[in-house]
């Protein structure tokens, strides 16, 4: 990563954990997961609590759908690491790679439900333009999305607008597709609070 403290500044306990994970999984811990171990009291711990709530907490959206929102927001922010990481989680949760790819290409044309499509388009506008209008939100409500689902989607959008910026500024290493698949399996099993 671009700051030396994020490569070599971890405490002994974290360094031991990184070594164990590498031995057990066969892959180095991805930079997204390493980052939250650096001075966790400052950013990692409160950020993980928010992200875990948004991505794995109670919601009218499935885990696959929320991971797809994360991948889509990441795509608009041109964050390669996060697109690959969360496409892999969404595809694994759906059991379908093509669906995720088609949404990232054009959510307007992809074979997804109307509520999910409308929500993705709203998140897209929010991410690109920084704002949405009450009318934009009404369009989403009109196709049957509940207000709590909108709150959930906005929370996913927030979490990934933060993470995308950190991934690209710190320059997270982009590993192989197999490493992302292994990471996806972990995130599906354990979530974001581990």
């Amino acid at each position: 990563m671009r700051l030396e403290i994020l490569n070599n500044g971890y405490k002994l306990g974290a360094r031991l954990l990184f070594s164990i994970i590498k031995i057990v999984s066969g892959y180095p811990l991805p930079d997204a997961a390493r980052l939250v171990f650096y001075r966790p009291d400052f950013y990692g711990t409160p950020a993980k609590a928010f992200t875990q709530r948004a991505m794995r907490g109670p919601s009218g959206w499935s885990v696959a759908e929320r991971e797809l929102m994360a991948a889509y927001v990441s795509k608009l922010n041109q964050c390669t690491f996060c697109v690959k990481a969360h496409s892999a989680v969404s595809a694994a949760a759906y059991g379908d790679n093509t669906k995720v790819e088609s949404v990232l290409t054009d959510p307007g044309e992809a074979a997804i439900t109307l509520p999910l499509r409308a929500t993705l388009l709203m998140l897209g506008k929010l991410t690109r333009q920084g704002t949405v209008s009450a009318d934009d939100v009404r369009k989403v409500i009109a196709v049957g999305v509940s207000t709590s689902q909108i709150e959930d989607a906005l929370a996913v959008c927030f979490a990934f607008n933060v993470t995308n910026r950190l991934a690209d500024t710190f320059d997270f290493f982009v590993p192989s597709d197999d490493a992302f698949k292994a990471g996806a399996k972990y995130l599906l099993k354990r979530g974001y609070s581990g």
């Binding site: 700051l3 403290i5 994020l6 650096y38 001075r39 400052f42 950013y43 929010l126 991410t127 920084g130 704002t131 949405v132 209008s133 009450a134 009318d135 934009d136 939100v137 009404r138 409500i141 207000t147 909108i150 709150e151 906005l154 929370a155 959008c157 927030f158 607008n161 933060v162 910026r165 950190l166 500024t169 710190f170």
Partner: peptide, 29 residues
């Protein structure tokens, strides 16, 4: 360490402004 903190603040700040705009639009709707 200062740069680390300022990058985190910048990222969270930019994302917060969007988030609050989204929540305000939801409240209005």
């Amino acid at each position: 360490d200062e740069i680390f903190e300022l990058i985190v603040c910048a990222a969270v700040g930019a994302a917060s402004r969007q988030y609050e705009n989204g929540l305000a639009a939801l409240a209005e709707a």
